[in-house]
């Protein structure tokens, strides 16, 4: 059985200008011991879909799905009490921007201990010991002293490690990491990613890595889902995605990477911008920016087929079929 199973997830927000679908028809399966990368530009619904899975979307957001299951537990009908037992223990999340996610008023050690106490993960007298063990595990030097530090006394990379320590405190079976390295320098990013992959292998965790950095996904994930304007447009094994992207959006996104354009003077760009709340096209959401779009694309929304949401997916040579 899959660890996390999502079918047809939608998240809507009631706004002054009407209802806005931030996430639309997302399917996702995460197996234990697997690293799934979720990529997309800002506003593509990566974070919101995962927050919905964690049950962290509050009013005025509305979550609907055909299936939303964690290890056999239906997350749509679960009682708040049961959900609290699950979230933070068996499924945990590392949030973006540690500087704003940590509480500035408490030492970081106390904040990690909070998770352990809430879930009675270890006996009371062992809590402090476990906190130091966790800080050591995430590579913080001098952990017993650092446990007494406040977030402002630590660097961004250190705080991100505290966030990771907090998330893995109860040995979760599913870890969702939302842009865990975005605000960090490349050398620190490398350390954090190595750490996450190590932990994932050690505990056989399922890891969902949300990022906008194609390089990070290429180096860590085994399978990748690409999101655009709230929809999942493509899903493939990592090598396949980078060698033979099937969706025109994925292909255009990869082409726009400076790394892939070495020696070329101008980078290929994607014209236009991601559609906002007012200018969603009727058919395929990417059609106004797609160089292969046909009349059918503008009129009729494609449904995902073999992991690609496109009427004319690209073949191995990058031409529409």
């Amino acid at each position: 059985m899959a660890l996390l199973e999502i079918r047809n997830l939608a998240v809507e927000f009631a706004t002054a200008r009407g209802r806005f679908r931030a996430v639309d028809g997302v399917d996702m399966t995460v197996e234990a011991g697997e690293v799934l990368g979720v990529v997309g530009e800002s506003g593509s619904g990566k974070s919101v879909s995962m927050l919905a899975a964690m049950g962290l979307i509050g009013w005025p957001g509305k979550v609907t799905a055909d299936v939303l299951r964690f290890d056999g537990t239906d997350l749509l009908s679960v009682s708040p009490r049961q959900r609290r037992k699950l979230v933070g223990k068996d499924m945990a999340m590392i949030f973006q921007e540690p500087m704003t996610s940590l509480n500035p008023c408490y030492p970081v050690g106390w904040q990690i201990a909070e998770a352990l106490r809430a879930h009675h993960a270890v006996p009371k007298e062992r809590v402090q010991h476990r906190v130091i063990e966790l800080l050591e595990q995430v590579g913080i030097p001098d952990p017993s002293r650092r446990a007494g530090n406040f977030p402002h006394q630590m660097s961004g990379g250190m705080n991100q490690r505290v966030m990771i320590a907090m998330a893995i405190a109860c040995k979760p079976r599913l870890l969702i990491a939302d842009e865990p390295t975005t605000a960090l320098d490349v050398t620190i990013q490398k350390q954090i990613l190595d750490l996450l992959v190590d932990l994932q292998r050690q505990h056989g965790m399922g890891l969902v890595l949300i990022t906008h950095d194609m390089g990070v996904v290429a180096e860590t994930a085994g399978r990748v889902q690409v999101m655009y304007a709230g929809q999942m447009v493509e899903q493939q094994a990592t090598d396949g995605l980078f060698n033979t992207p099937r969706h025109p959006y994925t292909a255009a996104l990869l082409d726009a990477l400076p790394e892939r354009a070495i020696g070329r003077h101008r980078l290929p760009t994607i014209p236009g911008t991601v559609p906002g709340i007012d200018d969603r096209p009727a058919g395929c959401l990417f059609s106004p920016r797609c160089k292969f779009a046909t009349a059918r694309c503008a009129a009729e929304a494609p449904v995902p087929q073999a992991g690609v949401r496109c009427h004319t997916p690209l073949d191995d040579a990058g031409a529409p079929r």
């Binding site: 490349v186 490398k190 990613l193 950095d213 980078f242 790394e259």
Partner: peptide
């Protein structure tokens, strides 16, 4: 060298 090695790459050969 360390910076270059730490930069994530989409090119598997450079990994």
């Amino acid at each position: 060298r360390m910076l270059l090695a730490a930069t994530p790459s989409v090119d598997p050969a450079r990994r």
